[in-house]
């Protein structure tokens, strides 16, 4: 059984990663266990006041889920005007757009290959 592969430029050995991942899991588990031992247990009846999150009231449980569009919000916002607006507009689902791109690609390839394809 040979683990790893020659890529032509170097050597890649996945076993190191597997070992690393296992070690990371064990380490994380130990830290979590240690923290659980040391931490003071939380008791609800000892609360002196209501939970207060920077001006908002206590969150209802169903609001604790946050939808997927909030992830990578910054990335999307940064590329909004430069890329996403035009790209989403292009993927309109209108059939003539699809045919338009076939024609354009065919023309470009024909011009490039027909006049430059031969050795």
């Amino acid at each position: 059984m040979v683990f790893g592969i020659e890529t032509g430029f170097g050597y890649w050995d996945p076993l190191i990663w597997v070992v690393l991942f296992v070690l990371m899991f064990i380490g994380g588990y130990l830290i979590a266990k240690y923290a659980a031992q040391r931490a003071t247990p939380f008791r609800a009846d000892e609360l002196e006041s209501e939970i207060f999150l920077s001006g908002w009231g206590e969150t209802v449980e169903k609001d604790l889920r946050f939808p997927s569009k909030h992830l990578y919000w910054g990335f999307r916002k940064a590329l909004e005007s430069a890329w996403y607006r035009s790209a989403v507009e292009e993927h309109s689902g209108i059939l003539t757009t699809y045919i338009f791109w076939i024609v354009i690609l065919l023309l470009i390839l024909m011009l490039l290959i027909a006049f430059g394809g031969a050795m």
Partner: peptide, 8 residues
């Protein structure tokens, strides 16, 4: 698109 078709 039309001119591309004509060229092709």
């Amino acid at each position: 698109g039309l001119s591309a078709i004509l060229l092709i």
